[in-house]
Amino acid sequence: MNGQQSKVLQISGLNVKVKGKHGTLALLQDIDLDLKRGQVLGLVGESGSGKTVTCHSIMQLFDPHQIMVEGSIRLHDRELNGLPEQEMRRIRGKEIALIMQNPISAFTPVYTIGVQFVETIRTHSDLTKKEAHELAVTSLASVNLPEPDKLMKQYPFQLSGGMLQRVMIAISMCLRPSVVIADEPTTALDVVNQLQVLRQLDRLRTECGTSILLISHDLGVISELADEVAIMQQGRIVEKADVFQLFDQPQHAYTKKLLNTRPTIPMNNQ
C-alpha cells in the first residue's frame, strides 16, 4: 500500500535468555522479524509464548544482569541492542512507542492526564508548555475523545479503560513515532471500544506512516488490522505469512489448530 517499502525495524537472530540458579533458560530463540513502513505486523501466540518478551527486548526494558538479549535489533540502520541507557531513553516514546495491555497501570495515578501528556511531549521536543498543551488537546480530540480540555485536568482513575487506552494512543500518535508496539491493546476492552481503538491504530498508520507491531491472541483483531502475521509458540516463530495466505492456507500444525478451534459466529446473517 505504500510506495516506499523500506524496512523500519529489523530484528534478526534474537535470542533472550534468563540466568537462573540452575543454568540459563531460553525465553526466545532465533526470532527474525522485519517491519516495513506503514505495515502492521501481527504477533500471535498463547500466553507464555514470548510475545511480550519480544516487545520488551525491542524497547530494551530488561535488566542486562538478569536477562541476556542477544542478536540484532535495528531501527533505521541503528543498532538498538546494547545501546546506552541515555540514548535509549531518547528513542523510547519518540521513535518507538509502546501501548500496553493495561492502560491503568501505564499512567501514574497521582498526576493528571494533562501533566503526563505535556511531560512526554516536552521530553522529546522543544515545544513550550503552552504549545505542548495545545498539541495534547488537538491529539486528544483526534482520537474522538469528548471535551479534551476537561480531560486534561482529570486523573487516570476518572476515565474508563477504553478512554484511557485512547489517551495512550493519542500520546503515542502526537510524537509521530516510526514504530508503535501495541501489546494486546484491546484485550481489556469491550467489543465496541475494541473497534474504536483498532480504528485509531489504523488511522495512525495511514496518516503518519507508522509501522505497528500488533501483539494479540485474538485472531479477530489480527484479521482486522494485520498485513502480515507471525505465529509464536514456546519462544519461537513457527510460521510467518501474509494475513490472507495465513488464513487461507495455514502451513504449520499449530496455526491450523489455532484457526480451527476458535469460536465462530455466522457473519452472513447480518
Partner: peptide, 20 residues
Amino acid sequence: KSLVSSILPEHPRQRVLLSR
C-alpha cells in the same frame, strides 16, 4: 446493532473498518 457490528471478522476478507 452496535454490538453486532463490532464483531471482529474471522477472515481478513471480511474486515469491518471501512477506511481502506
